[in-house]
Simulated scan of single mutants.
Amino acid sequence: MTEHNQYDENQEGTAHHQAPANDLSTFCEIAVASGNTGNVGETNLTWLALDLIEEQVGFNLRDYERPDTVKHIERLALAWERSEQFQPIEVQVVDGHCYVRDGHCRLRAARLAASRGAPIKRLPVIELKGNDQLACVRILTSNEQLKLSIIQRAHGYQRLRDFNWPDEQIASHIGMTDTHVRETLRLLLLPESIQALLEKGIIKPFLALDLWRKYGGASEQIILDAYEVRKREQAELLAKAANAGDEPLATPVQKVDQAQPAPIPEPEIRLTSRHISAPTKRIGKKLITNMTSTMTGISKLMRESAIIDANNGTISVQIPIEEYERFMSISSEVSKHRHDEPAGKPDSENDQQVLGLAS
């Protein structure tokens, strides 16, 4: 990226030791003082040349290699070439650099369109006032066209936590609940392989977290095994369709452009609780015998010692300590073999409210 913090260098009549700009007005004055009055224009908005606006490394939460991001920027570039109008890009001037804070994709698309010959010289900008913390909040709340993924949002929340923001403050600024913030941040504890599946929308956040809570590190292999099974199932379905002579499904773009057909997209794979095979332990004959014996003994003691209190709707029983301890021991052993469902309902309303709002 070209450095623009020294526009006054070697210019006659301009101080050589002028402090770097930290607001848009001063930044524009220095840009004009460089001798090229075409760098800056102003109507009701400020207009800046494309090369004056920079991206701060690591600030944007997006992954520009993601297919949906690449497609989004391409769509915006085509819109620029058609001279469509966009919202001004929000910028913040820091130490003589004019950084984009909202509109990274619009800026990249404008540069792409300009490289193809579109007559784009300058872009309208407005200044974002405030510190780096508020700039981080802005990127979390401003993705109006291409939404951030759940993992990208989690990194944004973590950035605010690093500024010592409590979860309640983060939630207040982004219009979510503090529970949503905490649960989203927990996604960063998951293995990278599972985070990658979350990014692709293959598994829902609440299901991944539920499995992580129940099985810890073993949940990674449980999820990956289920994913491999689903991929094989999809491959078998495609093979059957091909053998039956069915034409592969085509996207609208493929149907229109028959001269250069786009590659057939991979079938979407979704993992729900019914696809997850949770580990279970086989109950042995010894445990079954102990369970039967213990329950029979407890039932006999309850029948013999039960005192009914009809007024309070309760029953009092007397059980010897050794029988009680035996019952609790058997109960603990049985709980180890219990097969819990990974996540009650695949699309639990409450879980969706907590984590699904950002997906």
Rank of each mutant, 00 (worst) to 15 (best):
Q11R: 15
Q11P: 00
E12T: 06
E12L: 14
G13A: 01
G13V: 03
T14M: 08
T14I: 08
T14V: 11
A15P: 07
H17A: 07
Q18R: 11
Q18Y: 02
A19M: 09
A19K: 10
A19E: 10
A19L: 11
P20N: 03
N22G: 15
L24W: 01
L24H: 04
L24T: 01
S25I: 10
S25Y: 01
S25D: 06
T26K: 06
T26Q: 15
F27G: 12
F27L: 07
C28N: 05
E29M: 08
E29A: 14
E29Y: 04
I30K: 13
I30G: 10
V32Q: 13
V32M: 06
V32P: 00
V32F: 00
A33H: 12
A33Q: 12
A33F: 07
S34N: 08
S34G: 14
S34R: 11
G35Q: 09
G35I: 05
N36A: 02
N36G: 03
N36S: 00
T37Y: 10
G38I: 01
N39G: 11
V40H: 12
V40T: 07
V40L: 03
E42M: 15
T43I: 02
T43H: 08
N44A: 09
N44R: 13
L45V: 04
L45F: 13
T46L: 02
T46S: 07
L48D: 12
L48T: 14
L48R: 11
L50H: 09
L52K: 01
L52M: 06
L52A: 03
I53M: 10
I53Q: 04
E54P: 08
E54T: 12
E54A: 15
E54D: 15
E55C: 03
E55A: 06
E55Q: 11
Q56D: 14
Q56T: 00
V57P: 12
G58P: 15
G58N: 07
F59N: 14
N60Y: 07
L61E: 13
L61P: 15
R62P: 15
R62F: 13
R62H: 09
D63H: 08
E65S: 13
E65Q: 08
R66H: 11
R66G: 05
P67D: 06
P67N: 01
P67S: 04
D68M: 09
T69P: 01
T69W: 00
V70H: 03
V70D: 02
K71D: 15
H72R: 02
H72K: 02
I73Y: 07
I73F: 02
E74Q: 11
E74W: 05
L76C: 06
L76G: 05
A77W: 01
A77G: 01
A77M: 02
L78V: 08
L78P: 01
L78R: 13
W80C: 12
W80Y: 15
E81R: 10
E81P: 00
R82M: 08
S83D: 15
S83H: 10
E84H: 11
E84P: 01
Q85V: 15
Q85E: 12
Q85Y: 09
F86A: 06
Q87D: 14
Q87C: 06
P88G: 01
I89C: 03
I89A: 05
V91L: 02
V93A: 02
V93F: 06
V93Y: 03
V93G: 14
V94H: 08
D95S: 07
D95E: 13
D95I: 00
D95V: 02
G96K: 04
G96P: 14
H97S: 12
H97I: 12
C98Y: 10
C98T: 12
C98K: 09
C98S: 10
Y99K: 05
Y99E: 10
